[in-house]
Amino acid sequence: MIDDFTILKNRAKILAKRKTEGDADVNRLMIVEFLLIPERYALPGEAIAEVLPLRDFTPIPGTPAFVVGVINARGKIISVINLKSFLHLKEQGITELNKVVILKNGQMEFGILVDAILGAREISLNSLHSPPATLEEAGVEYIQGVTEDGLVLLNSTAIISNKLLIINQK
């Protein structure tokens, strides 16, 4: 009889096995997919620090329209922006926008509003297409590519390190 430990060990082995199909590791990327009605977008998982529900926020007067306000994330104040209006994406109707995806790198930290988190998965960078002409108005520099199924992968570096995002009215 096989004991539990052996079963678990075998399972772990199978899980740990690399998928043979597709490309080498360097070309695969873990992404987090989210909804900005009506489009589906994604960001590399490494750029995302956490996802929080938006319960309350404080608007800051005098900031550009894309700055939604600030939130209290466990005692720390984090600003939240509306990616749709920052990227000049077409806005249609009104949407809930009640999730905050916190983006973070060494210097910068802020949240973006999304309508829903659709999940995390791995994609192959080789399968990315260049963005269709309709998306170009949003600024090609912010788009890393588009997957087979029409998911728009955003360029996290171009967004997080964007100087235009920084508000300094000194």
Binding site: D56, F57, T58, I60, P61, G62, T63, V67, V70, I71, N72, G75, I77, I78, S79, I81, Q107, M108, E109, F110, L165, I166, I167, N168, Q169, K170
Partner: peptide, 25 residues
């Protein structure tokens, strides 16, 4: 502070957090 994205907003010097968790500029 208002975080690294809002370096300096005119007329606002920062914020405090009230006992109920709300942020007040």
């Amino acid at each position: 502070t208002l975080g690294p994205q809002l370096v300096h907003v005119r007329n606002i010097s920062g914020a405090i957090v009230l006992g109920n968790g709300s942020v007040i500029p």
